[in-house]
């Protein structure tokens, strides 16, 4: 396939693969945790970007798919005793199904109304889960440690989770690239620029938007299962944390919405910065303030994000940075 020869595809893949392999040398568990967070952010931000960056719909509650996938996956593993690698697709399919059911209705809303509705969906889901006893209600669920035996002990289980995440992250990037370069993606970008004009040109906007929504929900559903399996505990507050949703928006904006590489760089940079701030004596307590100021500066002065800005400034880079 000719796509593999495009730097716009292999550059982000290479960056992610390199980072993913790093902890394997020397079996470094703490580095693995750091990279896990980073990979997860990359994959979640890239998924969000398909709806936000390509289609122009601001999803403030994208985390609902992560949480839903997480809960269902956790339930399948801990209560039903199924294998993790079976639970992961269940989480993804559940999230994608929710998006499919909601999509045609919610995506009729535009602009701020859509953003508000996505917040509402996340909050409604969180409130619902709190009331569902089989999912542990307000206190959530814990994973019984004996479950890890099936995977050859806790260490093996964690590595398995890690590699599964790495594969999914690479997959997200490939999908993100292929969507962008496809006829379908062009239709999405037409919708982003002017939905009514796109429809007049023949773009079946309701179907295209719903498809984008489903894709951008599927991956968070998969990843939710991995994350909460790794954590061994799931609670409504951590599964449906609106704040994480907004952080993902920030990552996409940082790197450049609508680009393939942007969310990758944005997520990596954001997590690195967060890590630095959290461990620094000076900023330990004020990391939120620093992040806020940074976000404000970017929104006000470089709204296209790093990759968008580079592409705009230096035309020759456009082939390299998609």
């Amino acid at each position: 396939m000719s796509a593999w020869r495009q730097p716009g595809l292999w550059l982000p893949l290479l960056l992610v693969a390199a980072a993913a392999i790093w902890p394997a040398f020397g079996n470094n568990a703490s580095l693995r945790e750091t990279i896990f967070t980073m990979l997860m952010s990359v994959a979640l931000a890239s998924s969000l970007n398909i709806l936000l960056g390509y289609t122009g719909y601001v999803n403030f509650g994208s985390i609902v798919f992560f949480g839903l996938g997480g809960y269902l996956g956790f339930y399948t593993v801990s209560a039903l005793g199924w294998h993790l690698l079976l639970a992961v697709p269940i989480g993804g399919v559940a999230a994608a199904t929710l998006a499919l059911l909601l999509g045609s209705a919610v995506l009729r809303l535009r602009g701020a109304y859509f953003a508000l509705a996505t917040i509402g969906i996340n909050e409604a889901m969180k409130a619902l889960v709190i009331n569902l006893d089989f999912l542990g209600g307000p206190t959530g669920m814990n994973l019984n440690f004996s479950i890890y035996q099936e995977y050859g002990g806790p260490a093996q289980a964690l590595w398995l989770t890690y590699w599964a995440l790495a594969v999914i992250t690479l997959l997200v990037i490939v999908v993100s690239y292929l969507v962008k370069k496809s006829k379908f993606g062009l239709g999405l970008m037409a919708i982003r620029e002017d939905e009514d004009a796109a429809e007049v040109m023949g773009v079946v906007a309701p179907r295209a938007k719903t498809t984008a929504y489903v894709i951008s929900a599927f991956f968070p559903g998969l990843i939710g299962v991995l994350f909460f399996f790794k954590n061994g505990i799931i609670e409504p507050e951590s599964a449906f944390r609106l704040h994480l949703s907004v952080e993902l928006l920030v990552m996409v904006m940082l790197g450049g919405a609508g680009t393939v590489l942007g969310p990758v760089l944005g997520a990596a940079f954001y997590q690195r910065l967060r890590g630095l701030l959290l461990t620094s004596e000076l900023f330990k307590n004020t990391q939120l303030v620093v992040a806020g100021v940074l976000l404000l500066l970017i929104v006000l002065f470089i709204p296209a994000g790093a990759v968008g800005w580079l592409r705009h400034r230096f035309a020759p880079l456009r082939r390299l940075l998609e």
Partner: peptide, 9 residues
């Protein structure tokens, strides 16, 4: 223009 051609008749 490609949008027009892709999604037209």
């Amino acid at each position: 223009v490609v949008v027009g051609a892709c999604y037209g008749r």
